[in-house]
Structure formats: structure tokens, C-alpha cells
């Protein structure tokens, strides 16, 4: 007899109905992909990274394709936290999926100020702290490569909010476990592992970097094995839930991350290629659990067989 598997998971105090989350920067402000499906069907959505002030982003070109990957240097172009709360958040009022706001600051103080602005705002279920953007001059990844600074940023946010705090880590470090532990000790409820890998592309005809910013962040299937390893490594290092992401294109990819212990996964670049990718992954996970006779997806999580 067919069972209806329970797909719900808990990520640091936020209960979501399935483990599929739309990743920041690939799902707009939450409504852009509504022509394709109802975002309520996802576990949660993380909106485009927001700063205190609007940011115009980097000079173009900002994106280029590399083998099985997408290199970007958008530079956190965003409308700013106030405009988001005023203009965009109301459009998500009918969306049943929890909205997670990704925040980015130029200083430790700005991160906590952002958390303060969000505190008490209905319709925002959690905060994802971006200490891993490779595409901005000040701050960004710098906060995520030094355990002490990462810890200060986390602490500053946790103290200003009652909402669950997820910290998004950069892969561009010698050992992600060190940063993961520091952020956990500072009170993070969960981790997102990982953001994009630093990369570049050169136009041999002009002998110039393709991206005006010279370097960008690499995403897509090209980074999946590395992101999967970092997720595995982070899961071993901390007790808090880890959300895995990096190159997940389909439910098989998602299951790999769940098997190494990711409590949930995020779908990013795949949204650009197949706007229904995240929803198809939800269906794929449900079908997989049914086929495998799993009543609860939590039985799958971390069930990697190593011997």
C-alpha cells in the first residue's frame, strides 16, 4: 500500500513542509516565477539579498557561462530593505511558503541594524545572513572568511531578532568547519552551505576578463561535487541543521545532499534554466520516498552508508 511520506523538516526553529527552498538571488523578490507555479508549494523562499540602502550593482557584463556553470558578478543589486518591506513583501501575503530574508551589510553594525528592521515585521519567517558574497568590494565574503568576524556578525544579528537565524557560508575558505563552528557558537540556528566559488573567465580575443568585475562567483552543476563535500564537512562539524546548496538541478542531486546530512536544500541556478525546477524537485523527493517506502524524509537525511 502506498504511503504518503511526511516531507516536513525543521531548520533551526523554522518548520517547513518540504525541504526544498528557493535560493537567494535566483527567485527575485518571491513573485517573479509565479507565472510558472505557485511558490506556496515550496518549503520556503529566500529573497534576493537586501542591504540597508539600495545598491545599483556592478558594471556589466555581469554574467557569463562556463562549462556546466554560471559565473556572475551581480554585486548585490537590490532595492534596499525598506523598499522590500513596503513594496514587495505585501505581494507575498498570500504565499503560504515561509519567506526568508537574505541580508547583507557593509559592517557588523549594519547586519544587526538590518535584523532590527526586520524584527516585528509580519510575513518574514527567518533571516539568512549573507557573509559570503564574492562580488562586493567591502564586506561580503570578508565577513565569512575570518571565524572571529563571522562570529561577531552572527552574534549581532541573533541579539536583535527573535526569528530563526541562518548563516550562509562561503566555500572560499581553507576549512569550512572552522567557520561553521564559530557561527554555531555565536548562536546561529542553521547554516546554508554554500555560496558561489570564486572564478574568472577571459576573452582571448580582447585579452580581457569577460566580467568587468574581473572575478565572479561560480554556480551550477560545475560546483556540485565541491558543494556536496562542503555540506558533508559542515554537517560533521556542527549540531545545528545544515541547508545544502550548490548546483542542485534535480531531485537526484537533492537526495545526494540529504544523504550526506543536509536537513534541507536550496535550488538556485536551476531556476534560471527550468523555472519549474524547484517544484519538480519537491515532486521528485515525494516520489522517491514513496518508492523507497519512507514514511518520513528525515529517515533519509544523513543516512549515508560509508563502510
Amino acid at each position: 500500500m502506498a504511503i504518503t511520506p511526511d516531507l516536513s523538516v525543521d531548520i533551526g526553529g523554522l518548520r517547513i513542509k518540504n525541504p526544498v527552498i528557493a535560493a537567494s538571488g535566483t527567485f527575485g523578490y518571491g513573485t517573479e516565477l509565479s507565472p510558472f507555479y505557485d511558490p506556496s508549494l515550496l518549503g520556503a523562499i529566500v529573497v534576493k539579498g537586501l542591504s540597508l540602502q539600495p545598491m545599483p550593482g556592478n558594471p556589466p557584463p555581469r554574467t557569463v557561462e562556463t562549462p556546466c556553470g554560471l559565473l556572475n558578478s551581480i554585486g548585490l543589486a537590490n532595492i534596499g530593505i525598506n523598499a522590500f518591506i513596503k513594496e514587495k513583501l505585501p505581494l507575498l501575503a498570500d504565499t503560504a511558503a515561509p519567506v526568508i530574508v537574505n541580508i547583507y551589510g557593509n559592517s557588523v553594525g549594519e547586519y544587526s541594524e538590518l535584523a532590527g528592521r526586520i524584527e516585528g515585521v509580519d510575513g518574514i519567517s527567518a533571516i539568512e545572513v549573507n557573509i559570503s558574497c564574492p562580488n562586493v568590494e567591502k564586506g561580503g565574503m570578508v565577513f565569512g572568511t575570518d571565524p572571529e568576524t563571522a562570529s561577531k556578525v552572527t552574534d549581532g544579528v541573533v541579539k536583535r531578532t527573535t526569528k530563526p537565524v541562518i548563516v550562509k557560508l562561503t566555500p572560499n575558505v581553507a576549512d569550512i568547519a572552522v567557520i561553521a563552528k564559530a557561527v554555531e557558537s555565536a548562536g546561529a540556528g542553521a547554516l546554508s552551505v554554500t555560496n558561489t566559488f570564486l572564478g574568472m573567465s577571459v576573452d582571448i580575443a580582447s585579452r580581457r576578463p569577460v566580467l568587468t568585475n574581473v572575478v565572479g562567483g561560480l554556480s551550477g552543476p560545475a560546483i556540485k561535487p565541491m558543494a556536496l563535500y562542503l555540506t558533508y564537512r559542515a554537517v560533521e562539524a556542527v549540531k545545528i541543521p545544515v541547508i545544502g546548496l550548490g548546483g542542485i538541478m534535480n531531485h537526484q542531486d537533492a537526495i545526494e545532499f540529504l544523504l550526506v546530512g543536509a536537513r534541507a536544500i536550496q535550488v538556485g541556478t536551476a531556476n534560471f534554466i527550468n523555472p519549474r525546477a524547484a517544484l519538480e524537485i519537491v515532486h521528485g523527493l515525494r516520489n522517491f520516498c514513496e518508492r523507497e517506502n519512507l514514511s518520513d524524509i528525515n529517515h533519509l537525511i544523513g543516512s549515508l552508508i560509508k563502510e
Binding site: 550593482g57 556589466p60 555581469r62
Partner: peptide, 17 residues
Amino acid sequence: ESYMACGLGICLGCAIR
């Protein structure tokens, strides 16, 4: 014409001044 990753106003890749 521009490089663009999504065409849907999400990736913010196709900026022109």
C-alpha cells in the same frame, strides 16, 4: 542585446547604464 541568465528579471545580469 546583452548577456542574460534568466530573461525574467531575476538574475539582474543584463544591466545597461
